[in-house]
């Protein structure tokens, strides 16, 4: 998967290009937030609260604490990646082995996985998350763990479905016939092929993670103001919308939408990207 290949797919698939571009922009914002943001995200100007966009040093206005909305929105990208990447990693670390074993061996692992999924489906995720965070205590780390754990079974099911489809594939049968031990059939033959479809789902699950963490922050659980987290900022700004100070909530809201949309579009394009049949080789 070379860079030119990414470019090639981006050219052919505009949705992927837009999504990938959006994530790239957010990644740059997150990486260089200190350089790009004109003001520190939590520096308060007590005499300059709720200034509209374009007034003085506040490009996108200031919030109720007199903090710069623009700088805070940019720093929010750090929180978004801070939740998306580790939560995605947790999903992969737990979900892939679980899905692999459940799909290949079936049996009790499969049963347990399916029952957990049933429970998750029956229970509104947000209430479940709320309950767990309330029980384990607030804090960013807990939010990451909760979001990652909650989504792991779903990711495991994605992997499981891929494995089930591959289990009876001729090349898997041929691998057994060649004398591969079971672990090698799983790791060398099934995993690289199963991971393909699953990886394409990862950005979609990350988008969910960003959304759910913002939602948790919005209802006052998880990351707390004045930390520049988009959900927390929206919650803060929500009370001002009625009184006409719309910018406090709008800009973090737009950033959240753009990031989630970007991840979703990239996820759709990724299945194209990872398809070996389209990999440019040879001539």
């Amino acid at each position: 998967m070379s860079f030119t290949h990414v470019l090639g797919v981006a050219r052919r698939s505009p949705t992927f290009a837009v999504g990938f571009g959006a994530i790239l922009v957010f990644a740059l914002l997150a990486a260089f937030a200190d350089l790009i943001a004109p003001l520190p995200p939590t520096q308060s100007f007590p005499y300059e609260t709720l200034r509209p966009p374009g007034s003085g040093q506040f490009l996108l206005g200031s919030d109720g604490n007199g903090m710069d909305v623009f700088s805070r929105t940019i720093h929010g990208a750090r929180y978004a990646f801070g939740i998306a990447l580790p939560a995605g990693a947790i999903m992969a670390v737990i979900g892939i082995p679980l899905g692999l074993i459940a799909g290949w061996r079936g049996g009790w692992v499969d049963e347990v996985l399916l029952r957990i999924l049933d429970v998750l489906r029956a229970f509104p995720t947000i209430i479940l998350a709320l309950a767990i965070v309330a029980a384990t205590g607030q804090g960013f780390l807990n939010v990451i763990l909760v979001v990652g754990f909650l989504d792991s079974p779903i990711f495991a099911r994605i992997v499981r479905a891929e494995v089930l489809a591959l289990r009876n594939a001729t090349f898997v049968r041929a691998a057994v016939a060649a004398g591969n031990p079971e672990w090698r059939v799983l790791l060398v033959h099934i995993l690289p092929n199963a991971i393909l479809g699953a990886t394409a789902q990862l950005p979609l699950r990350m988008a969910w993670a960003v959304r759910i963490s913002a939602t948790l922050a919005f209802i006052g659980i998880g990351v707390q103001a004045p930390a520049p987290e988009w959900g927390a900022m929206i919650r803060q700004g929500a009370e001002y919308v009625i009184s006409g100070e719309w910018w406090v909530a709008l800009f973090p809201g737009l950033a959240l939408i753009a990031m989630v949309l970007g991840l979703n579009l990239a996820g759709d394009g990724l299945s194209d990207l990872l398809d070996p049949k389209r990999r440019a080789t040879g001539k």
């Binding site: 594939a169 001729t170 090349f171 691998a175 016939a177 092929n193």
Partner: peptide, 15 residues
């Protein structure tokens, strides 16, 4: 040893 019918499906596509 064994050789299967479908040559396209009998080899791991990622090797």
């Amino acid at each position: 040893q064994v050789v299967f019918q479908d040559p396209w499906g009998a080899l791991n596509p990622r090797m």
